[in-house]
C-alpha cells in the first residue's frame, strides 16, 4: 500500500472525487450548509484516517496542482473586463463600500486578537481572512503567519458568507444588487462569489470585482500594518 499512496496523481483524483461527491450531496439535500468544499475536506480527511495514508503523501501530490491557484485568480480579470460597462455606473459606491468593509474587518480582527491575547503568529494568520486565498495566504506568510491555517480560516469565512449571505441581505434590507455583490465579495471572496453568481450575473460580477478590490486594499493596508506588529 505504501508505494501506492505515494503516486503523485492519487491525491488529485481523490480530491476531484470528494469534490464531486460533495456537490452531489449538496444537490440532493439542497442545503447551503452542505458546501462542496467543506464536504470534500471532510471526505478527504476521513479517507486519510481510514486508509492510513500519510498527510504528507496527500500534500506532496496536491503541491503539483496547488500552484494553479495563482493563474486561476489572475483570470478573475476576465469577468471584471466583461462586466466593466455595468460596473462603471456604481464605481464610487462600490469602492467606498469595499474600503469600509475591508478596513472594518482588519481593525476588528486586530482588536479581537489583542483582546484574546492571541500570539503574533495567529494574529497575522487571521488578518487576511476575508480575502481570497491566492491573495490572503501569501499575505499571511509574508507577515510570518501560517499558510494552511490561513487557508482554513479563509474557507470557513467564504462558506459562512455563502450559507448565510442571502438571509443577511434580507435582514439588513439590502435590495440593491450592487450592494449585495459588494457584501458577498468583500466579506467572503471567491467562495461567496459563487453564491452571488446564483442570485444574478450582475451580483456575481460585482462580487468578483469587490473581492479583487478588497484583496488589493487588504494587501496595501497589511503591508503597512505589519511594520507595527
Amino acid at each position: 500500500m505504501k508505494e501506492l499512496f505515494s503516486i503523485p496523481v492519487l491525491p488529485v483524483v481523490l480530491t476531484l472525487l470528494a469534490y464531486q461527491a460533495g456537490a452531489a450531496i449538496q444537490k440532493r439535500t439542497k442545503s447551503a450548509l452542505c458546501n462542496p468544499i467543506l464536504l470534500a475536506v471532510v471526505l478527504v480527511a476521513l479517507f486519510l484516517f481510514g486508509s492510513g495514508m500519510e498527510l504528507e503523501d496527500y500534500q506532496a501530490g496536491m503541491k503539483n496542482v496547488s500552484w494553479l491557484m495563482t493563474p486561476a485568480t489572475v483570470c478573475l480579470a476576465i469577468p471584471m473586463y466583461e462586466q466593466y460597462q455595468e460596473l462603471k455606473k456604481s464605481m464610487r459606491a462600490m469602492a467606498i463600500g469595499v474600503a469600509a468593509g475591508s478596513a472594518a474587518c482588519i481593525v476588528m480582527v486586530w482588536g479581537l486578537c489583542m483582546l484574546f491575547g492571541l500570539s503574533r503568529t495567529l494574529t497575522v494568520t487571521l488578518l487576511p481572512k476575508s480575502v481570497t486565498s491566492a491573495i490572503g495566504v501569501p499575505l499571511a506568510q509574508m507577515g510570518g503567519g501560517l499558510g494552511s491555517l490561513c487557508t482554513a480560516v479563509i474557507i470557513v469565512t467564504g462558506i459562512l458568507g455563502s450559507v448565510f449571505g442571502e438571509a443577511a441581505c434580507k435582514m439588513l434590507g439590502l435590495t440593491d444588487p450592487v450592494a449585495q455583490g459588494v457584501a458577498f465579495g468583500t466579506a467572503s471572496h471567491v467562495v461567496g462569489t459563487a453564491k452571488a453568481g446564483e442570485i444574478s450575473p450582475l451580483v456575481g460580477a460585482v462580487s468578483s470585482l469587490s473581492l479583487v478590490v478588497a484583496g488589493l486594499m487588504t494587501s496595501v493596508i497589511l503591508s503597512v500594518l505589519y511594520g507595527f506588529l
Partner: peptide, 19 residues
C-alpha cells in the same frame, strides 16, 4: 468567534454603505 463575528460585520458594513 473572531472568524464568525468579523465575517458578519464585514458583510453588513460593506453592503449597507454601498446601498
Amino acid at each position: 468567534l473572531i472568524v464568525v463575528s468579523t465575517t458578519a460585520v464585514t458583510f453588513g458594513i460593506s453592503g449597507v454603505v454601498t446601498q
